[in-house]
Design a protein around this nucleic acid. Sequence first.
RNA 1: GCGGUAUUGGUGAAGUGGUUAACACACCGGAUUGUGGUUCCGGCACGCGUGGGUUCGAUUCCCACAUACCGCCCCA
Length: 433
Amino acid sequence: MLMRYQRPKGTADILPGDSQIWQYVEATARKLFATYRFDEIRTPMFENFEVFSRTSGDTSDIVTKEMYDFKDKGDRHLSLRPEGTAGVVRAFVENKLYGPETQKPYKVYYMGPMFRYERPQSGRQRQFHQIGVEAFGSDAPELDVEVIALGMTLLGKLGLKHLRLALNTLGDKKSRDAYRQALIDFLEPHFEELSDDSKVRLHKNPLRVLDSKDKHDQAIVADAPSILDFLTPAATSHFDRVKASLDALGIAYDVDATMVRGLDYYNHTIFEIMADSPALGEGYTTVLAGGRYNGLVEELGGPDMPGVGFGLGVERLVLLMQAEKVAVPNDNALDVYVVGIGDETSLETLKLVQSIRAAGLTADRDYLGRKPKAQFKTANRLSAAYTLTIGSQELADQTANLKSMATGEEISVPLADIYQDFEKVVTTKFTAK
RNA sequence: GCGGUAUUGGUGAAGUGGUUAACACACCGGAUUGUGGUUCCGGCACGCGUGGGUUCGAUUCCCACAUACCGCCCCA
């Protein structure tokens, strides 16, 4: 036996059957995005390393330990994209889409693979897929809400139940800096009591201590100051309008003042849509997350232009849909299975399937030289609506036997009629139906 | 990166330190000549994740590695 190859760790083959769900997800997303006037943007799967390191934050885990970065033969430091936003923003800036000739907000969506070097688990892989949207050029809280509503609507259309929208604000830079300091001041006296993880986080990214899973940490954090008390008037106003707009649309939400983001570029509104399903372990798991990133365009060399968006994990989404048994439309039903009896009919059956296909129907035939009985079994298993049988006798008569698999009714039809208008034969020749 | 569990055919799985690796599903074939969901009969792992080791002998014991899954970290 030769060497057997395995796919690389953390990757998956999406096989026929599963790919139907993926196509359904993607098609549903494209259709919905179009109604919101978001257009597709396609950016490279790898970028200069700095595109991600600058935007995600030099100390973020994504950059420090999860990035697939490498030097190419020209000694360029590149990285496989760990998320979608940075590349889109780079493209936005590089193509000067911030210019006056494009309508603002400039709304785009993307879908495709992302890469992170981490321990695979269910719904978490090294090559995974995201669908995301970004809207540039407006500070309006209503735009934040449009993006949130889009996310909620998409998940709803895809059949997900038990969704929870968690909402928070990181405020502007001033709010955030003030809060960060207050949080450090609060946690410092408890330093020795904190978990080892949180000790590290305290100075690297103190906000992360807030969502520590450690019970003792949670007890300490329970009395910590809230970001909401450190917002500047402008940040408060923005957040209030976001909430008011959500209320106006009847979208329920929970404000979670301890929710933070792993990527450093977020500010103001941040949100997560979580689903409660055993498919992804106990409790609520985030499927879709996003927020505002007003400094990001400038960070990558563009003008001071705000942005807001979200990304959703397709693997997680698909797991949830499967757990909820969401019905995916099956659009590859078989209309006609052509049964050929004897080698001499092979040429005619080939012409028949081609003719039926050309008429816009789906058709298939046997290529394994199997007996009629086996061919009918296959037709039945494939749920063919009709079988068209041709043997040496029919070949001589220039006819074929058309059978409705549902009723069992079988009629003889001239081949000429089939080649001329198969659809008409089906609709007019049977007595029933 | 850390800790844990697992790894037998296309699938679900049973099983033993030693002649032919149980059973079920799926698939393929047959039940007198060319017609489909039932029934009956038959076929289907030269191999038990990979590589070493222990042993007279290992799929069964030991070690390493790989992969999957779970928890941590982190995140979609």
